[in-house]
Design a protein around this nucleic acid. Structure first.
Lengths: 122, 122
DNA sequence: CGAGCCAACTAGGTTAACTATGTTGCTCAC
DNA sequence: GTGAGCAACATAGTTAACCTAGTTGGCTCG
């Protein structure tokens, strides 16, 4: 599809969707058409549609929910499904994970250095 | 290299690079390692590296120049930190940094103390 | 010696296939 | 009628392959 504009297809699609969101055609909370539908509508491959959605996702304009769909983000607030997309919870989980792993590493290090195998380079 | 944080590989790489940029390891104006090099360094496929760079690109943190490389955006001209500036982003970066360093230590520990080939990410 | 070509790198775009995982609705057995 | 299980569909992630295009440096040939 597209071209002419010199812009890659996935950016054109992303721009179009972004315009629709900002223009109100796609209201906050409403789901975008499915990847397949968008691919048909824009006559593009699934891959470029996924790329386009990916751009909007990293921009924070939309939020993808596995199994359900991709929803337009409420400006400044969370979508009707405030699932575990919480950064704080994510961070906590990560920190917890790090703590456990650190403990293991420290343990290994303690037992291995006693017989002096300290083989730490770089 | 991946796993650990439960985050997808391309986001982990993006976060790592982002941390390096914000941390100063990658100064503005300097080029990132080439896609191939990054793929080797992170033991990831070219695809995920391209995805990671793509994320930073859409974030405006780096600018890709075909044929030359991907360069860190000059601080003055980068409007980034779109939603950041908050503690959360800082924390995130720090945690990410810790995760990377821990992963390295774990790797060293695994290769130096074990002769079970258990590890290795693909 | 110089001009031009060429080979080797680079990023970027596109496609396709496969996997994983989550959601939802239907059907079928009890 | 209810519950279990399944099938269909959704996003998400990963990989691989192929192509385009820009840059650079070296080599060759005139």
């Amino acid at each position: 599809m597209v071209r002419n504009t010199g812009q890659p297809a996935y950016l054109q699609i992303a721009d179009d969707l972004r315009a629709q969101i900002r223009g109100g055609s796609l209201a906050p909370g409403t789901p975008l058409p499915s990847t397949t539908k968008l691919a048909e509508r824009y006559d593009a491959s699934l891959s470029v549609v996924k790329l386009a959605v990916g751009v909007l996702r990293t921009e924070g304009l939309v939020i993808g929910q596995q199994g359900k769909g991709v929803f337009v983000r409420e400006a400044g607030e969370l979508p009707p499904d405030p699932k575990a997309g919480d950064e704080l919870a994510e961070l906590r989980a990560t920190v917890q994970d790090l703590a456990v792993r650190l403990a293991k590493v420290e343990e290994q290090l303690a037992t291995s250095t006693t017989r002096r195998s300290g083989r730490s380079s770089r």
